Deep mutational scan, measured.
Amino acid sequence: NQASVVANQLIPINTALTLVMMRAEVVTPMGIPAVDIPRLVSMQVNRAVPLGTTLMPDMVKGYA
């Protein structure tokens, strides 16, 4: 099973992602693959992402 990107903290809307905000976890359903974490750094979320939420492609501006 491939790990997905999960929020390590509450990420407010329009926040630029940093490594500290994300962790890799095997979850269902799968979200953004953990291998993409370096690519996500400095991209912004388009909604508030609660702690423990799996990041989906439509939550990150410019990802999809």
Score class of each variant (00 low, 15 high):
S42D: 05
M30Y: 14
P12F: 08
L10P: 08
P50L: 09
T54P: 11
V20P: 03
A34F: 10
T28I: 05
P12L: 12
I37N: 01
Y63W: 13
M22K: 00
R47D: 10
N1F: 15
M59E: 03
V41D: 03
A24T: 10
Q2S: 14
R47N: 07
R23M: 08
V41K: 06
N46L: 15
M22N: 00
N1W: 10
R23D: 04
P50M: 10
D58I: 06
A7G: 03
V35H: 13
M22Q: 01
M56C: 11
S42W: 12
K61W: 09
G62T: 08
K61H: 13
A24S: 14
V41S: 03
V60Y: 01
I37Y: 02
T15F: 08
L40H: 00
R23K: 10
G31D: 00
I32H: 00
P38M: 06
M21Y: 10
L55D: 00
I11F: 01
A34I: 07
Q9N: 09
A48N: 08
I37R: 05
V27I: 08
R39A: 09
N1H: 11
A7E: 01
I11Y: 01
A16E: 05
I37S: 04
K61D: 06
V45H: 00
M56N: 08
N14D: 09
N46W: 15
V20L: 14
Q44F: 14
L19A: 08
A24N: 14
M22I: 07
A64C: 12
A16N: 05
V26G: 11
A34R: 03
Q2R: 03
M59I: 10
V27S: 10
I37A: 06
G31M: 02
T18I: 04
Q2G: 15
G52A: 12
V5R: 01
G62W: 11
N8V: 10
A24Y: 10
P57G: 13
V41E: 07
M43E: 04
V41C: 07
R23C: 04
V20C: 10
A16Q: 14
D36Q: 09
L55F: 10
N14F: 13
L51I: 14
T53V: 13
P38A: 13
T54G: 03
T53P: 00
V60F: 05
S42N: 06
N1T: 15
S4D: 01
P38L: 07
M22F: 10
N8R: 07
P50F: 15
P38S: 12
M56Y: 12
I13C: 12
V60W: 02
V49F: 02
Y63E: 04
L40C: 04
P57Q: 11
Q44E: 05
R47P: 02
V45L: 12
T28N: 06
R47H: 14
L10D: 13
I13N: 08
L40S: 00
V6F: 02
V20Y: 14
I32M: 03
I37W: 02
P50H: 08
L55C: 02
M59S: 07
M56R: 05
R23T: 04
I11G: 01
V41A: 08
N8W: 07
M30T: 12
Q44M: 12
V45R: 00
A24H: 10
V27M: 15
T18S: 09
V27K: 07
P33N: 14
P12I: 07
V35I: 09
Q44H: 07
L40R: 00
L10T: 10
L19Q: 04
I37K: 04
M21F: 07
I32K: 00
P57L: 06
A48L: 09
L40I: 12
P50E: 14
M30D: 15
P33M: 07
V49H: 02
V26K: 03
Q2V: 14
T15I: 07
N46Q: 12
R23E: 03
P12E: 10
S42F: 14
N46Y: 14
N46C: 05
V60L: 09
A34L: 03
V27H: 05
V26Q: 14
R39Q: 05
P29A: 13
V41M: 08
D36G: 04
P12H: 11
M30G: 04
I11D: 00
V6H: 02
P12Y: 09
L55E: 01
M56L: 08
V35D: 12
N46G: 14
S42C: 15
E25M: 06
V26A: 12
V5K: 01
G31Q: 02
R47G: 10
A7L: 04
Y63V: 03
V60S: 01
T54E: 02
I13Q: 12
L17V: 03
T18W: 03
D58W: 07
V27C: 05
V20W: 13
L55A: 00
T53A: 15
A3V: 08
I37F: 04
V27D: 02
T18L: 07
S42R: 14
M21T: 03
Q2C: 15
T15Y: 07
T15R: 10
A16K: 04
A16P: 14
M21S: 06
V45I: 08
S42P: 03
S4F: 02
A64N: 09
N1L: 14
I11R: 00
P50N: 14
L55K: 00
V35F: 10
A16I: 07
A64V: 10
V20G: 08
L19F: 07
V60I: 13
A24K: 08
N8M: 12
L51E: 13
I32G: 00
L55I: 15
R39N: 05
Q9F: 12
M30C: 15
A64G: 15
